[in-house]
Amino acid sequence: GATAVSEWTEYKTADGKTLYYNNRTLESTWEKPQELK
């Protein structure tokens, strides 16, 4: 079967924080998503 690919993209901001963006739900979060833990 196909492996579930994470929908989350990780961005590094200018101040060194990490922003997570979900390509499916168009949601963005500063918290690390469950799927990435």
Rank of each mutant, 00 (worst) to 15 (best):
V5N: 11
Y20M: 00
S28H: 11
A14S: 11
T3F: 10
T13N: 08
S6E: 10
L19V: 11
K37Y: 11
Y20P: 00
E35I: 07
Y11T: 07
W8S: 00
L19E: 05
K17E: 09
W30H: 09
E7G: 06
E10R: 02
E35Y: 06
K17A: 05
Y20E: 02
A14E: 11
L26H: 15
V5R: 11
Y21I: 15
N22G: 01
A4Q: 11
P33W: 01
K12W: 08
K37E: 14
T9K: 06
T29D: 03
T9P: 00
K37V: 14
A4Y: 07
Y11A: 04
A14W: 05
K12G: 03
T29P: 02
E31I: 11
E35W: 05
Y20W: 12
T18S: 07
N22S: 01
A14L: 10
K17P: 00
W8L: 01
T3V: 15
D15Y: 03
S28E: 11
G1V: 12
G16D: 03
R24N: 10
T9V: 14
K17Y: 05
Y21V: 15
E7V: 06
A4W: 07
L26G: 15
T3S: 15
A2E: 13
E31A: 05
A2K: 12
S6K: 08
Y11G: 03
E35H: 08
T18L: 09
D15A: 05
E31Q: 06
E10A: 06
L36M: 11
N23F: 08
Q34I: 14
T13D: 11
S6T: 10
S28N: 05
T3M: 13
T9H: 09
R24G: 07
P33M: 02
K32G: 02
S28F: 15
E27D: 04
E31V: 09
G1L: 13
V5L: 13
E35T: 05
W30M: 10
T13Q: 10
T18P: 04
S6R: 07
G16W: 00
L19D: 03
D15S: 09
L19H: 05
N22Q: 01
A2N: 12
Q34L: 14
T18I: 15
A14F: 04
L26A: 11
L26T: 09
Y20S: 00
T18D: 04
L36W: 06
Y11H: 09
A4H: 12
V5E: 12
L36P: 07
T3R: 12
T25P: 00
K32S: 04
Y21P: 04
T18Q: 03
A14V: 10
G1P: 12
L26I: 02
Y21L: 08
K17M: 05
T13A: 08
R24W: 08
Y11E: 04
A2H: 11
Y21C: 14
L36H: 08
E7D: 13
W8Y: 02
N23Q: 11
T18E: 03
T13K: 03
T13M: 14
V5Q: 11
Y20Q: 02
T3D: 12
